[in-house]
Amino acid sequence: MNFLALIGRTLIRFFNATGHFAWFAAKTLIHTFTRPFYWGQMGRQIVDIGYYSLPVVGLTALFTGMVLALQSHSGFSRFDAESAIPTVVILSITRELGPVMAGLMVAGRIGAAIAAELGTMRVTEQIDALTTLSTNPYKYLIVPRFIAATLMMPLLVLVADIIGVFGGFLVSVYGLEFNAANYLNQTWEYLEFRDVTSGLWKAAMFGAIVALMGCYNGFNSQGGAQGVGAATTNAVVSASIMILITNYLMTGILFAAN
C-alpha cells in the first residue's frame, strides 16, 4: 500500500512539474513575440551567453577533435582504414559532438548562472519589485535570456565545429603524420551541407532548453540560499538530461530519410 502510494505521489509530482514547466515555456514563447522588447537586456545576454562562452566551448571542441582523431586512428589502423579519419572527425563533430558538447558546457556555465541569478532575485524579492515597478518579469528577465541562448548557441557551435575539426587536423598532421593537403581534401569530400545545418538546428534547441531550464528553476526557487543552490543544481542536471534526450529525438527526425 505504501509502495503504491509512493508511486502515486511520485507520478503526481512529475505530472505537476511537467505541466508547470509547459505553462512556463508557453508564457515565455507568448512574451517573446509581444511588446515591449528590452533590447538593452537582450544585448547584455547575447554578450554574456555568446561571447563569454567562447573560451570554454572552444577549448572543449579543440580537445574533443584531438581525442577523436587519436581514437579513430587507434581503432581504424586495425583494418587499414586510417584514410577515413578526416571524414569521421568532421561528421562526428558537426553532427553530434559539436552541438552536444557545446550544449552540455553551456548548460553548466549559463544554465547555472541564470538559475543562481534569478533564484537570488526571487528570494530577495527583486522579481516582485519588478512587478511593482510596472515591468513584466517574463519580458525583462526571461525573454532576453531565452532569445540570446537560442540565437547564440548555433553561432557557438559553428565556431566549435571549426575548432574541433582544426583539433583533429593538428593531431593527424603533426602527430599521426598525415599529409595536410590530403587531410583537408578528405575532410571536405564527404561533408554535406545538412551535416552542418542539422547540428545548428540542434544547437538552437539546446540553447532554448538551457535558458528555459535555468530560468524556470531560478524563477521558481524558494527558501533562501539552500533553495537557490537546489535551483542551480536542478537547472544544470535537467538541462543536461533534456539535451541528451532531445539530441536522440532530433537525430531520429533529421536523419530519418537515411
Partner: peptide, 10 residues
C-alpha cells in the same frame, strides 16, 4: 510604489 523589507534593489 513599494518599499520592500530587504530593499530589493537590483
Amino acid at each position: 510604489g513599494m518599499l520592500f523589507q530587504g530593499s530589493a534593489l537590483f
